[in-house]
Simulated scan of single mutants.
Amino acid sequence: MAPSLEEPEPVSDVIENPLKSKPQLVAPEPEHCPGPESEQAGKADNCAGCPNQAICASAPKGPDPDIPLISARLSGIKHKILVLSGKGGVGKSTFTSMLGHAFAMREENNVGIMDTDICGPSIPKMMGVETETIHISSTGWSPVWVSDNLGVMSIQFMLPAKDDAVIWRGPKKNGLIKQFLKDVDWGDMDFLLVDTPPGTSDEHLSVNSFLKESGIDGAVMITTPQEVALLDVRKEIDFCRKAGIKVLGLVENMSGFVCPNCTHESQIFRATTGGGAALAKEMGIPFLGEVPLDPRIGRSCDYGESFFEAFPDSPACTALKGVVRGLAEQIGIDAKLVLPDD
């Protein structure tokens, strides 16, 4: 076993190989500019006389040389699934953690979770490994193992204190995501789940560009029933289509409240425009199901426990298993190879 990083390096020193960033221009890009990262940058006729000509001509061009290294590192992972929404607070990290536990219920499955929410990493807390640190071996960084077949990687493991803020610009965050893919020894895995922050910006573009060559099965969309959430999910679906990411399906989270005592379900976030099912039909994507709001889900995440093991009789647990089986169908595998028989 390699030594633990008992004294983590300052977060600002973590990135050693940052993503190629846009060159710093001395003047605004003029009209008809080919773009500072274009192969014609600094060479096109429109570049003549531009104050940025020398900068653009000397900037690095072409594909990222680390992409083949990432593809080789991830060659042993069978299925790569993104968890997206566009909207914050709809339960992406909660769903990712429960999806990881669900896949890991079958002992033959090896599962990894990559937390790309750099500024708000919550996966380690939900998985019960918040105080762990990263180990380094001759083959790279080792994921933090929640169980024998469930590993996690997050920036939380690198912070000197759990309450420290990460105040980074885009290139720095992109560089860390690259290291999570290139330097982490994921090994042979059946599933790699990628938890993402809200939006359609740096982290999402980086994950897509880094994983595209190695293959992404697709993305699972998470929403809540109200139109305020659906607005942002529509944008995320549009992002996936423009980025060439297959949408595996949409899950409506918090679709109702289930009383832990009487199991009666009440509508808390009542759908005003049809909710997730109507959105899935409108956008032409599969609807994987509705997961009710159960306060015991939050309790399980707070204590880093598996909701499936703690409350197997909950209606939310039954709904989640249905979602997992639907997701298995979308990625083309037998549901029996994902969840053990009840």
Rank of each mutant, 00 (worst) to 15 (best):
P8S: 14
P10Y: 11
N17C: 10
Q24T: 13
P28Q: 07
E31L: 11
E37G: 08
Q53A: 13
C56S: 06
A57N: 03
A59M: 06
P68V: 13
K78V: 02
H79C: 03
S93F: 08
F95W: 07
M98Q: 13
E107H: 12
I113W: 05
I113C: 13
S122K: 13
S122H: 09
V129P: 08
T133M: 11
P143M: 11
V146N: 12
V146W: 07
N149P: 03
M153D: 09
K172W: 04
K173F: 04
G175Q: 00
K178S: 02
K182H: 11
V184Q: 05
T196Q: 07
T196L: 14
P198Q: 06
T200G: 07
L205R: 09
I216D: 00
I216H: 03
G218I: 00
G218D: 00
A219N: 01
M221W: 03
Q226D: 04
Q226G: 03
L230H: 04
D238I: 09
F239C: 11
A243H: 04
V251Y: 02
E252S: 02
S255N: 10
N261H: 15
C262N: 12
C262Q: 12
C262L: 13
E265F: 07
E265V: 14
I268V: 14
F269K: 02
A278I: 04
I285Q: 02
I285P: 02
V291F: 06
V291L: 08
V291H: 01
L293G: 02
G298D: 01
D302K: 05
G304E: 10
F307I: 01
T318F: 03
G322Y: 02
V323E: 00
V324D: 00
Q330D: 12
L339I: 02
L339C: 00
L339Y: 01
D341F: 11
